[in-house]
Design a protein around this nucleic acid. Structure first.
Length: 834
RNA sequence: GCCCCCGUAGCCCAAUGGCAGAGGCAGAAGACUUAAAAUCUUUCCAGUGUGGGUUCGAGUCCCACCGGGGGUACCA
């Protein structure tokens, strides 16, 4: 008898029984299936960044998807028509590497992992619409990737050019920027990344640089500051001027960009990037001795690794190329140098060097003993006074008024910049200009497991877009195909696939051997969820008009730049083509923090906590609510600092409340204990704003608080039969379902209702029960707490001051001093200033 | 170097400019138990990184610094 009771107690949170039980019910009821055409309810589009199917879910997924799910379930409860879909970002190199390593088909590896993750998500009680799943590696999906490519090509936004790319010498393939670590090594192989010049496909993101930058203002307050800042830096707009320098023996002037056109009078030499076409051209017409020196320097620069090259402390190197530019104002002869501190693909690949006012130019001038001309005052930081600079004060960056600069003399830095642009514009040798750090998006990859590029190459080099009715261009079978990296795309080896004919002329042509960057796949997937099975179009423009933008996006900060920037770019491009009515895809964004183990990031190498083990030990509900309770969602936390066991204990306590309720469903709550009723309604009043401001940890604390109060009412108050106990239990159950759906379903059933609790609306708080009759007022003297008073809420300022003044403690304190003035904030506070 | 975020109890975290504590973890005591676990009850613990400022009043706003985390860096 006793032991049976004990067993029951331990089973109050019996996840091993409840999980399979409710999974069956959910499978039948499909509570989260959405009808997009239902306009009777307002829409909410809640989206989690779709996962890459490398193995099973891990702690990071568990955290992020818990947050997304809480938000989605909340909007279901508020009666919204909620689109909360899931898919897989299932093209990519890990599948290909697994294929090479273990000799399995990348498709098999990928889809087996997807099946496993899908089951794990379902078990994790995610409120997805399971009837609208997509995988980017399905031909039904990547057909529309190819369609998108062709649309961009039509618009001139997809083009080919030869450029320097990251090359992994071990994997023998190009790498995406994000696969190159800060130290210049490959994330995957650890090899030092090389640069290779290859002809590749690019998307013209730079055309949208200004809009991508300016529209960030609209996201202020709704995206994390950090992400907005990172995007601003990435786009890196600099404002200044283009200045033309006439080069002796060349018809066309050389244009340089400068943010400091006010210092043009101080330009003493010019530098071109050694890899630039400009350098090659200038050198081709110089004396042989310079040609040789330059050739040597170019080889040396190219042999350098990224690590060496990026070292800012490195001594400046360069060669004089034997040619001269003429200063646009003074006409002085300025020697032209080639140096690797000037980058070929930024600005115009050439600079005017002003050593007096630029660190890099100064270092270079020092190394090669070039003249330094000061053209702005030096202001001593200590004294704030203008004085003659010592040698060690150079270069002078935070300059005072312009000097030695003709019409600019006496102007402050800002005014001098404006004036310089005016002067240059008048002379026709310069103009205001902007330049960007942002580069065009390299989308070609020498990989097999990706979207084939729908372009045919004619024998004469002609580019022939594949007609739309020939899409999808599917990948060939891996049968007989060597995927081992050899520096060329594996598709090139599929002879039958690569060789085809021009659909218009029947002439032999070759397909493009490269596949697209998988960031192309993810740059528009949020549009495909409207109907992943539509085989007539990528997405329906009318449905998109109703359902875009995504109201809430949830995912990791590791995508702060690339994925989010590309998605914003594609959205704007589709807007310009008239297919979207919005220019920003994601209205609100939250980045989950990291789940750490002993202060360290978890990874496959360092181990850490295994999600499956934790789920086995504590159950889905306890893990989900632990994630929610751990702190603000954007903060990282240590798994050791939180307590899944404590969560399990809490869930058992909540369950016990439901079990203790003895009143029947539909009982009249109005006769219930007023203290508990008020607590319940205050709780119901607080929850919406807490969830909507992502304070999930506080929400859980409120749940715990209400459980504690209800427990007290049952054990030492009006007892389990009190209708207020049922009211509290029902409110608890409904709100708990956001965090711990299995336990909530079980409680809802115990309370005498049919499933599913997920679709029961959040009860409205009764305003009558939110009214507080009396309140504790604070009495301060000089801002220090001296007494507290119990006063009616409706008390007037005069009354409150009077009561406060006549409180014994205050009276005594005020006797000895003179009151200078009194601050009254009825009904909460009185402050006597003496 | 530059940019962003964070410093509240032993620990994780709350606190519309108005009583520093909602909640949890860990600890202590007690109840139940032959005992333990589980459960329940009670309880201990800081003046908010440092120094200024604004204010009747600052954890909260402003400035400087210290400490920690993240991003980025030869971008003209």
């Amino acid at each position: 008898m006793k032991s049976a009771e004990n067993t029951n107690e331990r089973n109050d949170y019996d996840f091993q029984t409840t999980q399979p039980k409710w999974q069956k019910v959910w499978e039948e009821l499909k509570p989260f299936k959405v009808d997009l055409s239902d306009s009777s309810k307002p829409k909410k589009y809640v989206l989690d960044m779709f996962p890459y199917p490398s193995g099973d879910l891990h702690m990071g997924h568990a955290e992020a998807f818990a947050f997304g799910d809480i938000i989605a379930r909340y909007w279901f409860q508020r009666g919204y028509n909620v689109l909360h879909p899931i898919g897989w970002d299932s093209f990519g190199l890990p599948a290909e590497n697994a294929a090479i390593k273990r000799g399995v088909d990348p498709k098999k590896w990928t889809y087996e992992n997807i099946a496993q993750q899908r089951q794990s998500f379902f078990n994790y009680a995610c409120s997805f619409d399971w009837d609208r799943v997509l995988h980017t590696s399905d031909p039904e999906y990547y057909k529309w990737n190819q369609w998108l490519f062709l649309k961009l090509y039509e618009q001139g936004l997809a083009y080919r050019k030869a450029s320097w790319v990251n090359w992994d010498p071990v994997d023998q393939t190009v790498l995406a920027n994000e696969q190159v670590l800060a130290d210049g090594t490959s994330e995957r192989t650890g090899a030092v990344v090389e640069k290779r010049k290859l002809t590749q496909w690019y998307f013209k993101v730079t055309d949208y640089a200004d809009r991508l930058l300016n529209d960030l203002d609209k996201l202020e307050g709704r995206w994390p500051n950090k992400v907005i800042a990172m995007q601003r830096n990435w786009i890196g707009r600099s404002e200044g001027a283009d200045i033309d320098f006439v080069v002796e023996g060349r018809d066309e002037p050389v244009t340089v960009f400068s943010t400091r056109p006010d210092t043009v009078w101080g330009a003493t030499f010019m530098v071109v990037a050694p890899e630039s076409e400009l350098a090659a051209e200038l050198v081709s017409e110089t004396a042989d001795e310079y040609k040789e020196a330059f050739a040597e320097y170019l080889v040396a620069a190219q042999r350098m690794t990224e690590i060496e090259r990026q070292d800012a402390n490195r001594k400046k190197t360069g060669v004089f190329i034997g040619r001269y530019a003429l200063h646009p104002i003074s006409g002085a002869k300025l020697p032209i140098w080639a140096a690797d501190y000037v980058l070929a693909d930024y600005g115009h690949g050439a600079i005017m060097a002003v050593p007096a006012h630029d660190q890099r130019d100064y270092d270079f001038a020092e190394t090669f003993d070039l003249p330094v001309i000061q053209v702005a005052e030096f202001v001593d930081k200590e004294t704030g006074e203008v004085r003659e600079p010592e040698l060690t004060d150079f270069p002078i960056i935070d300059t005072g008024k312009a000097i030695n600069s003709g019409p600019l003399d006496g102007l402050s830095k800002q005014d001098a910049i404006q004036k310089a642009i005016e002067v240059l514009t008048e002379r026709g040798t310069g103009r205001a200009s902007k330049t960007y750090r942002l580069r065009d998006w390299l989308i070609s990859r020498q990989r097999f497991w990706g979207t084939p590029i729908p372009i045919l190459h004619g024998e004469d080099g002609e580019l022939i877009p594949l007609p739309e009715d020939q899409l999808p261009l599917t990948l060939p079978s891996t049968e007989g195909l060597d995927l081992t990296p050899k520096g060329k795309s594996p598709l090139g080896g599929a002879a039958e696939w690569i060789n085809t004919t021009d659909p218009r002329t029947g002439k032999p042509v070759k397909r493009d051997p490269d596949t697209m960057d998988t960031f192309v796949d993810s740059s528009w997937y949020f549009l495909r969820f409207f109907d992943p099975n539509d085989d007539t179009k990528a997405f329906d423009t009318e449905i998109a008009a109703n359902w875009m933008p995504v109201d809430q996006y949830v995912g990791g900060v590791e995508h702060a730049i690339l994925h989010l920037l590309y998605s914003r770019f594609i959205t704007k491009a589709l807007y310009d083509m008239g297919m979207l009515k919005v220019q920003e895809p994601f209205t609100s964004l939250i980045n989950q923090g990291m789940v750490l183990s002993n202060g360290a990031k978890m990874s496959k190498r360092s181990g850490g906590v295994n999600l499956a083990d934790e789920l086995d030990k504590y159950g889905v509900d306890a893990i989900r609510i632990t994630m929610a309770f751990a702190g603000p969602p954007e903060d990282s936390f240590n798994w050791e600092d939180v307590s899944p066991a404590g969560s399990a204990k809490f869930l058992a306590r909540a369950m016990r409340i439901a079990k203790d309720v003895t009143s029947e469903p539909g009982v009249d709550f109005s006769k219930g204990d007023e203290t508990l009723r008020k607590a319940t309604h205050k709780f119901l009043d607080q929850i919406p704003s807490l969830i909507e401001s992502f304070k999930f940890n506080v929400s859980v604390a409120k749940l715990m608080e209400l459980v504690n109060i209800t427990r007290k009412t049952i054990d030492s108050g009006s007892g389990a039969a009190d209708p207020a106990v049922r009211e509290a239990a029902e409110a608890l159950t409904i709100v708990l379902s956001l965090f711990s759906p299995y336990t909530a379903e079980e409680m809802w059933e115990i309370l005498g209702y049919e499933p599913t609790v997920a679709l029961v609306g959040l009860p409205e708080a009764d305003p009558a029960l939110l009214v507080v009759e009396s309140i504790t007022a604070v009495v301060q003297v000089n801002g220090k707490l001296r007494a507290t008073l119990e006063v009616p809420v409706g008390i007037s300022a005069a009354e409150l001051e009077d009561v406060a003044r006549n409180t014994a403690e205050i009276k005594r304190l005020l006797e000895t001093s003179e009151i200078r003035h009194v601050v009254v904030r009825e009904p909460k506070l009185v402050n006597f200033v003496v």
